[in-house]
Design a protein around this nucleic acid. Structure first.
Lengths: 233, 233
DNA sequence: TAGATTGTTAATCGATTAACAATC
DNA sequence: TAGATTGTTAATCGATTAACAATC
């Protein structure tokens, strides 16, 4: 059995955000490795596959308090278990999806959320044709049942996938029903009380990073070519 | 007209990633403000609406080299124009989507990408029923036409929305066709040459951040209650 | 002028990387 | 033992925040 130091609640509460964003990456990667029969893995191997610095991987692994063995590496299963505990993947959290258009349907059809502790247990839509049907096995309700469903199942997380102009209204409905956290896919800013957690899924931000990296690389390559040309000339 | 210092190419190439991720956020926010008739805006107002520190907003605005006026603020349109230039939104980049299931369809139906410089001009799918049809006005081709379509239109960006187990194969096809950047929505790590830009859209990472923030807040609230209870007792 | 806001420089904070000892 | 890998401490790097001058 892999050695495991006592968890440090303070360290876990104050986890740096960049690290917190890397942990699910490790988790997914390690689950995939386990499926391929890998039982022990070194930090340098992880770093290489995920394009990270090996020391950073060791620092992150240290957060899990799973000890590795010099000359061999870390126990994959132990890391998976501890990451799941730290990220609270074992406590399934109920969530509802408001807006069952293309994006909402895609989320409702995605079967991978369970592995990350999220249970999408209901969808809501204003379209009477959708109401009463199921999308990816999840039942779709009319908007005016939102309050009762959320209260009855003590749902904590609301996912907003409605058009931009309806997002704030839906947000208000969710908060009125007692929701504590909002996962917002609508491309707009939501006004909420301070104690409500809002996570904006800004696909444009991600796209911009990609786009900028591409432009920058091409700029660099072009200036390299010019430099080459002039040194040859 | 708003004052505008000369762009600084070095500063733009070496833009810090956290800042780069905030710029599209400002862009979207400012476009929305403009639609509502706002012409001048202060850094403190932006900061308040986007939950940022006002000094940070001013630093970020300084990156655009748009000068604000003391006592009034920044010209909204000037900021929008300069952000669009910095993020290269004006040069429409062609992209293809491989995998036209729920998520791929959602992307193809999303009409907002044009505003962010991305033109999804073709979809590919192995399902013969989809091939020849259109999803959100974008034509769907069979996979074996990927190479010719990508070459013909000099497409630089490939979007992968196929199931996990097909992602690496699709990635290889895209690279063979000359694609330089991959936007990967499949929950798996892709092996690529060093000069290829890969942006992983890890929805699980985002979800985990939300989930952890929720758990942590509830932990804090519970320990606050206990502290309250004992101080009262 | 007084006051509000920008914008810059310095200080702080936090994350990443380097160096190296400890361990198997 | 030799060598490879972990794990910790120190150094560096970079981003955020604070302080305050400049400007309208």
């Amino acid at each position: 059995m892999a050695r495991l130091k006592k968890p440090d609640p303070a360290a876990e509460l104050n986890m740096p955000q960049p690290a917190l964003r890397r942990l699910p990456q490790y988790f997914g990667y390690l689950v995939q490795q386990r499926e391929q029969g890998v039982e022990i893995i070194s930090s340098s191997r992880i770093a290489e596959d995920l394009n990270l610095h090996p020391v950073q991987v060791r620092k992150d692994m240290a957060l899990t308090r799973v000890s590795g063995k010099p000359r061999t590496g870390f126990n994959v299963q132990a890391l998976i278990d501890e990451l799941a505990r730290m990220l609270d993947y074992n406590n399934l959290k109920n969530a509802v999806v408001v807006g069952c258009g293309h994006l909402g349907s895609a989320l409702l059809n995605y079967r991978g959320f369970q592995g990350y502790g999220l249970n999408l247990m209901a969808g809501f839509d204003s379209d009477p044709k959708l109401v009463g049907s199921r999308v990816g096995e999840v039942p779709i309700y009319p908007l005016d049942e939102l309050d009762s469903v959320v209260r009855e199942h003590q749902v904590q997380i609301g996912v907003i996938t409605v058009p931009r102009d309806h997002a704030q209204h839906v947000c208000d409905l969710l908060l009125a029903a007692g929701i504590k956290a909002i996962w917002n896919f609508a491309p707009t800013h939501l006004s909420t009380p301070e104690d409500i957690i809002v996570q904006n899924e800004n696909i444009a931000a991600s796209l911009s990073v990609l786009s900028k990296r591409l432009s920058d690389q091409q700029l660099r390559q072009r200036s390299d070519q010019i430099a080459e040309g002039s040194s040859q000339g």
